[in-house]
Design a protein around this nucleic acid. Structure first.
Lengths: 225, 225
DNA sequence: TACATGGTTCGATCCCGATCGAAGCGTCCG
DNA sequence: CGGACGCTTCGATCGGGATCGAACCATGTA
């Protein structure tokens, strides 16, 4: 009767308050230790340990040992994308949930795994699209010359892109805007560059990014219609 | 501490064997009644009823009353896409799960909500891409003249497309191929057309599609390099 | 070598939710 | 109208899994 992969198993792993919070906390791409996560979620180290091992078994997170610490992070971009998609659906069912004061900041700009999401992330993606910067390559999207000339104003160039199998551009669904933002290797490089330029800074203990007035102005100028 | 939408709630709804099976059974886009689903999953009508109400509350499925029957279906394309994405991850953790004999058929061609997935679905999507048929429009992808000239050989034309807010083309992640296939209004129309032409036929009680030899040959000719 | 600190394992407890049968409520059919 | 059928609600039962503290292991530090 049952067809296809066992979806229930993965979902059950995510579908527990504590574990879901762990995933949420890791969604900014950072790697955290077990105790940090235990404190963040408000649970004993022992229970956190059991949660982490289940998450790891489901390949949702990956662990890395450094000395006597173990750092946990989201396993890969696919997982991050799934989680963002899920947030989109989750938001529909609990629309007027009273978020904390950080919520506006989250909607404005945040990290999604390793790239930029939120209003500003969507703005950049759509700006590139408006300028016809995207081309369909053999596998996925690439950026053409006109696109690179925009990006060069941020100090990004093809030569600086890491040589990996990871696709250069991907469109990732944004839960707050319900539109796309830029993911992939370029998305990651762009986010990193914004921090390097001090146009954006991560807020402590949050996925939210603080974007300076100067930074936002510059970005809007570059990608303006 | 907690940021963003409550992901755990949605995941918990999916993360139960019975409910996950319901979603799986509805993934072919059909609408089934409560008793049909109860039989399919192997559970009492009463428990199925409770499952269905939870699924509905989470907006994962939608119900429609017709006389003394209630028909349940996947709520929308976003949900379907999320589920396909989840199958992709689920497959990684249980790679050598022994599927039924229908599995090869599933991988060959199946319905994903209302459009074509599997090897053939991916082939069509990539064929269109190879021919440079996709253009970035204001919102999402569209098809250009060269694309429509390919599609016209299937009897599809812009005029026949339904006038809805639904995007014409979307790229949906395929769990079996781990690549994209064509979703959106065009994807749905294409799948419908294949059945109309009797190039493809749904297998009973399965998402799998049987594609006739003639049908496959024609499709491969149309989208060949 | 001893001690502190990060993490996991173990055993016991306890609660949420999946399950069922029976009863109730509509809707269609003879 | 009465009976059949589809579906939901209710109350009771039961099991899986989340939780904790304590003991244990491993890796640094004095």
């Amino acid at each position: 009767m049952y067809e296809g992969p066992n979806i229930a198993r993965v979902a059950a792993v995510i579908g527990e308050r504590g574990r879901a919070q762990v995933l949420g906390a890791l969604m900014d791409g950072r790697a955290l230790t077990a105790t940090e996560l235990a404190d963040a979620v408000g649970v004993t180290r022992s229970t956190m340990s059991s949660h982490l091992s289940r998450l790891q078994q489901a390949r949702l997170i990956a662990a890395e040992s450094q000395g006597r610490h173990r750092y946990f992070r989201i396993a890969n971009a696919d997982v991050a994308e799934l989680l963002e998609g899920m947030m989109g659906l989750a938001q529909l069912t609990t629309p007027q949930q009273t978020f904390g004061p950080r919520d506006p900041a989250l909607r404005k700009a945040r990290l999604c795994y390793d790239h930029l999401a939120g209003e500003l992330g969507v703005y950049i993606y759509e700006g590139l699209k408006r300028h016809g910067s995207f081309v369909h390559a053999n596998d996925g999207l690439t950026v053409n010359d006109s696109g690179w000339s925009l990006l060069s104003r941020l100090g990004l160039s093809p030569a600086l892109m890491p040589q990996t199998r990871r696709p250069l551009c991907r469109a990732c669904v944004d839960w707050s805007e319900r539109r796309h933002h830029l993911a992939g290797a370029l998305g990651a490089a762009l986010a990193a560059r914004l921090m390097e330029l001090r146009w954006a800074k991560r807020l402590p203990h949050s996925r939210a990014l603080h974007v300076t007035a100067q930074g936002e102005k510059s970005i809007r100028e570059i990608f303006a219609r």
